[in-house]
Simulated assay, not measured.
Amino acid sequence: MRKPELAAAIADQTGLTRDKASEVITAFTDQVSAAAARGEDVTLIGFGTFNIRSREARDGRNPQTGASIRIPASKTVASRPARDLRIKSAD
């Protein structure tokens, strides 16, 4: 599902216009991004958690030349779904 489809589904469920639902989605993603930039976690009970994870510096290889390169340390946003949201396997 892409953003326009999500906006349409939210609009149908809430009675908002599609444009207003799209604005709500944009505001949500902007707030999650801003919290991540501040280093804060965002937890939505029943949905999941967005948090910052640090990646250590590591050695890698350039796939075109095979040359060894140093990949610097970085930070990234990770998400973890709530237990109720996880898909259970059919095993």
Rank of each mutant, 00 (worst) to 15 (best):
F28D: 01
R61I: 05
A27M: 12
V24L: 12
T26F: 07
R53G: 11
I25H: 02
V32Y: 00
E40N: 10
G66M: 09
D59Y: 09
L44E: 06
T65K: 09
T65W: 03
G39Q: 07
G60T: 05
A27W: 04
V24I: 15
R61N: 07
V24R: 01
T29K: 06
I45M: 09
T29E: 09
T65H: 06
A57H: 09
I52K: 15
T43C: 10
R38K: 14
T26A: 13
Q64G: 04
A34S: 14
R55Y: 08
Q31R: 14
F28R: 03
R58H: 13
F28G: 03
V42R: 04
A37S: 12
V24E: 01
I25K: 06
E56Y: 03
Q64T: 08
V24A: 14
I52N: 09
V24Q: 08
A67W: 02
S68L: 11
A27T: 14
D30S: 12
R38N: 13
N51H: 12
L44S: 05
A36E: 01
E56L: 10
A57N: 07
N51T: 13
N62W: 05
S54R: 15
A35S: 14
T43A: 15
G66F: 08
D59G: 13
R53N: 11
D41K: 15
D59C: 02
A27P: 00
T65C: 01
F50G: 01
G60I: 06
T29F: 15
S54I: 02
S54P: 06
A34K: 14
S33F: 03
E23P: 00
Q31W: 07
T49F: 04
L44Y: 10
F47L: 13
N62K: 09
N62A: 09
R58T: 07
R55F: 02
T49V: 12
G46A: 04
R58W: 10
G48N: 00
G66C: 06
I45W: 02
G48I: 01
G39M: 03
T26M: 03
A57L: 07
A34T: 11
V32R: 00
S54H: 13
P63K: 08
T65D: 03
